[in-house]
């Protein structure tokens, strides 16, 4: 048998490779851990809604923004839950998924087999990043949709007064909630890139996860220090809570755009760092 006929059976035509992304998502969402993380996030609006329902009278002036509005309009559960989830819960779950991207494959020994499949290293990083982004979407929309559902179940639902003082109907309000979810997803994209980079540094996923979460916490702490104000516009978390503009009428897109530019910067920098590290790394695990 000649070598020519042997080699022609493979390595002839190359597909685009969307199937690998599909496979990545299916692996991500077939993990019990992914569902546990989403369930933990879903618990936030449930807890808020139930707590408000059981407590007597609106707790004016205390607690997260809009909490006092929940009992009058259930649509606010989604917004309040999102505000509660942003500082710690969302970065925590995203940190777990993003930190696991490469290090997790290394620790199960699947990284070397993926690379030999073969998957080029740049493509592997891109697909892993895309998977983490899809998780961010799932996470924010879990909080938003469970919040909306719980609000509708336990409280009256009606037209919402925007921060500009006008009133928008329920459909428009749902669109605004979806916009908030998209905004928060966008806010997390930079953190995903940080997590991806951390994940290329180690074969121990827990280390990369912790480092990613710590990065988001440090960024928020620095954001609280007035002495370091000059650095604030550059912080990963600078626009995290800046979605109030989406609750005005008409919608003001300034913070959305500024956030997008900032997150894109983080994606470029940490994406490049991750590629620089991973493309030359000896895969020994």
């Amino acid at each position: 048998m000649s070598s020519k006929t042997l080699s022609s059976s493979t390595a002839s035509r190359k597909s685009v490779g969307w199937r690998f992304l599909g496979s990545e998502l299916s692996v991500l969402f077939r993990r019990r851990r992914t569902w546990a993380l989403l369930a933990a996030l879903a618990a936030i609006p449930v807890l808020i809604a139930v707590a408000v329902k059981l407590s007597s009278g609106p707790p004016r002036g205390r607690g997260p923004a809009f909490l006092d509005q929940v009992s009058q309009n259930g649509l606010f559960v989604a917004v309040v839950a999102t505000i509660v989830a942003i500082p710690l819960f969302l970065p925590l779950t995203v940190g777990v998924v993003a930190g696991d991207t490469v290090a997790g494959e290394a620790s199960t020994g699947t990284l070397r087999y993926l690379l030999m499949s073969p998957v080029a290293r740049g493509r592997l990083l891109a697909v892993k990043y895309a998977g983490a982004v899809v998780f961010c979407l799932a996470a924010t929309f879990t909080v938003g949709s469970v919040g909306t559902l719980m609000g509708a179940l336990l409280f009256p639902v009606g037209p919402v007064t925007t921060l500009s003082g006008t009133t928008i109907d329920v459909t428009e309000s749902l669109v605004r909630i979806a916009l908030v979810c998209l905004y928060v997803t966008l806010s997390l994209l930079g953190l995903c890139a940080v997590g991806l980079f951390m994940s290329t540094l180690t074969d121990v996923p827990v280390g990369a996860m912790a480092a990613t979460v710590v990065a988001s916490v440090v960024s928020q702490v620095v954001g609280q220090l007035p002495q370091l104000e000059w650095i604030h516009p550059w912080l990963l978390t600078h626009y995290w809570l800046g979605f109030a503009d989406l609750l005005r009428d008409p919608v003001v897109w300034d913070s959305f755009a500024a956030n997008a530019v900032l997150q894109a910067g983080y994606i470029v920098v940490f994406g490049a760092l991750a590629y620089g590290r991973f493309s030359t790394k000896d895969v020994l695990a």
Binding site: T10, A11, S12, R13, K14, S15, V16, G17, R19, F20, G22, S23, S26, V27, T110, Y113, L114, S117, P118, V119
Partner: peptide, 9 residues
């Protein structure tokens, strides 16, 4: 199936 899906050839 997963490893095979990663192979574009």
């Amino acid at each position: 199936l997963r490893l095979d899906a990663a192979d574009r050839y």
